[in-house]
Design a protein around this nucleic acid. Structure first.
Lengths: 220, 220
DNA sequence: ACAAAAGTGTTAACTTTACACCCATGT
DNA sequence: ACATGGGTGTAAAGTTAACACTTTTGT
């Protein structure tokens, strides 16, 4: 096997969560050159003895302190100059987690870690802006999927909350009555009997049903 | 850079075309071990001085004898044992071409080359059955796209022909009147004034309009 | 009392589905 | 003349879109 047939490959993850009716993406801050102090997506070089899943799990468990989660392939980024030092092929993945059960590993790491609204991102290092935009585009298609929704909202949620998420992700507005009617008609959710507190009329809290018997999604 | 951080990467293409109202995929036959005599997708090892596009173009131009075409990323296949000899990460792409303008390079090659109906594939080598199934799944989503349709049907076509393609790809049947109404309503096609010959009533020949002003697709 | 946010129903427009007969050609 | 395959319209059902007032809470 000729040497020029060997490539450095990295896996890169866009991890999405929901906090206060906003979708956020997890970024880490580089402490060294190149792109020192820039925010980037979590990534790891792929060891050729490891599966891609291994490497993704290594990122989330060891770098970020999350537990085992599932991933979905999004895209490949392979320009010759995407890394200023050497040729690195990036395999990008997305993942959805529930922020309430997560405590970011903020200590003992080379990286600062934080969540950013997908509609107000900082300046990103390398070509990670392209990778994030690709991930967000995939999120737009996936947000209809019940499996994605249950990952983002594993426990109680209100309909206005879900509606705000759809509106943010799809960059549009829905009529409250029509949205509610359509979402309830999918028969995916059930009333918990609880309501929110805070200012304004309390909102009913719903949960996703355990048996998602129907293959119904919100759209398509 | 540690040696175990270097990987062999290959690009693999599912090239689709339309012949006689059937979607076909291009396969090549291996003449050597492993998987001698098995059919596989066209592929090439990625040289680390080349972009992925370069490598895809190398496959279609030099191995197959097609001209410059465009590609769309589909998936990544990276199991440790997908190649019996060594670890190879496959980046899979799909492409759509028009078969009438194509003459396969059937000579001077190590490979036999042929088109296969996507619904009657031969036994495939390596994990290429998974790769093909993933490509076909992507085709199912992409067949609504006007850009894909114009690649498959660059010149005249009939509505029954388009309908048969949808029915094959989506594994369903449509009512002829409803299909025709909906497709014409998209305002993407125009009557050429010509008709087919052959048995049965001649079918009108249509073409896609030059200015696809609308962003309209058949579905979604 | 007032401000904030959530809950609720009806109608019109549009889209989708179901359905059957006639037409133009080749043999 | 008959077999083959293509072209055509209408009505019912279902879905989506438009629209405004009332309810519950905190301050």
């Amino acid at each position: 096997m000729k040497e020029e047939y060997k490539n450095i490959v990295e896996s890169v993850i866009g991890i999405f969560t929901e906090v206060d009716s906003k979708i956020k993406i997890l970024l880490v801050r580089k402490k060294d050159e190149p792109y020192k102090n820039y925010w980037v997506l979590p990534s790891a070089i792929l060891n050729n003895n490891d599966t891609i899943e291994d490497s993704l799990n290594d990122i989330v468990i060891n770098q970020i302190g999350l537990s085992d989660i599932s991933f979905e392939h999004d895209n490949v980024f392979g320009s010759l100059d995407r890394d200023p030092d050497k040729r690195v092929i990036a395999l990008s993945y997305i993942s959805f987690i529930d922020s309430v059960s997560v405590e970011l590993k903020k200590v003992d790491t080379d990286y600062e870690i934080d969540w950013f609204d997908i509609d107000s991102l900082p300046r990103l290092g390398y070509d990670h802006e392209s990778i994030v935009l690709s991930a967000i585009n995939r999120l737009k298609k996936r947000i209809y999927d019940i499996d994605v929704l249950t990952k983002l909202f594993p426990s109680d949620f209100t309909l206005p909350e879900i509606q705000r998420i759809y509106e943010q992700v799809l960059e549009t507005k829905f009529d409250r009555r029509n949205f509610r009617k359509k979402f309830i008609a999918l028969n995916l959710i059930e009333d918990t009997g609880y309501v929110t507190d805070g200012v304004g009329r309390p909102a009913k809290l719903y949960r996703f049903k355990d048996d998602i018997s129907d293959g119904d999604d919100y759209n398509e």
